[in-house]
Nucleic acid binder design. Structure first.
Lengths: 129, 129
DNA sequence: CTAAAGGTACGATGTTTTTCGTACGATACA
DNA sequence: TGTATCGTACGAAAAACATCGTACCTTTAG
């Protein structure tokens, strides 16, 4: 099958992979043990499952690791921002035909987006002038 | 495995399922034939593959269908808006811990979001006062 | 009437993603 | 110094997704 890459970039992380990335983004470079513990705060996962995922992530080039110690330390290759931008871009293209303003409208119309959030967005825009 | 539902809602559509939904959103209630033709404008898919997907979508309760004719007519159960809001909500929660303004910042910082888009967003916000 | 065209049903198969068991090496410490 | 603990490697099973072939029913045109 065709490999799933964007022009200049890494393959899209899967759902389980994203969970792991998020731990690494939040807490910085970590061991499998640490990541697995964090994941288990939310759902039950076997240690070796997490290990395997992180190995796969490394094969894919999404993570790299420091093997100088027995406890390998895993690190995302791309910065959080960059990866998120890619995902966001894909999301906008898929669901909103690339129209960021349409996405915005939905965000603003969404009850779950608080007044406070909206205010913050306005301030943000003003400061961009 | 745990079934994948949000509190009050339908299961998340998969990628292939989303493609189909998008055709239905754009063109309204349609036959399998019609949807399949649209999909084939973008990539090759066998008719029965599309049929199967749409049957699965129906089983899942994401589509319903009018069987009164031989050519069944498929219709999304939920409105486009509602489904997109769900997906967007999940997206914001997953990637931005629920912070819409953070997502915004990324949108605005994204080169692919044109000046024109940004202007439109500003106008939108102003008109909300 | 009948053959071709076009429809649905559905099992089987292929692929990708996810999870886990087992093997085995290193470390720690009683 | 041996045994329990904690690590990695890795194949394989399980689950989720996607695709397709085949059977079989309806409609339609000649």
């Amino acid at each position: 099958m065709k490999s799933n890459q964007t022009e200049n970039n890494l393959p899209e992380p899967t759902k389980a992979e994203l969970e792991i990335l998020q731990v690494l983004w939040e807490f910085g470079p970590s061991t499998v043990r640490f990541v697995n513990d964090k994941l288990n705060e939310q759902r039950e996962v076997n240690y070796t499952s997490t290990l395997k995922q992180m190995q796969i992530l490394t094969e894919k080039g999404i993570l790299k690791r420091d093997e100088s110690q027995m406890k390998h330390i895993y690190i995302p290759v791309e910065a959080e921002e960059k990866t998120k931008v890619q995902l966001l871009d894909r999301f906008v293209n898929t669901l909103y035909r690339g129209s960021a303003s349409q996405l915005m409208m939905q965000l603003l119309g969404n009850e779950k987006t608080s007044k406070q959030e909206i205010e913050e967005i306005k301030r943000l825009l003003d400061s961009m002038e």
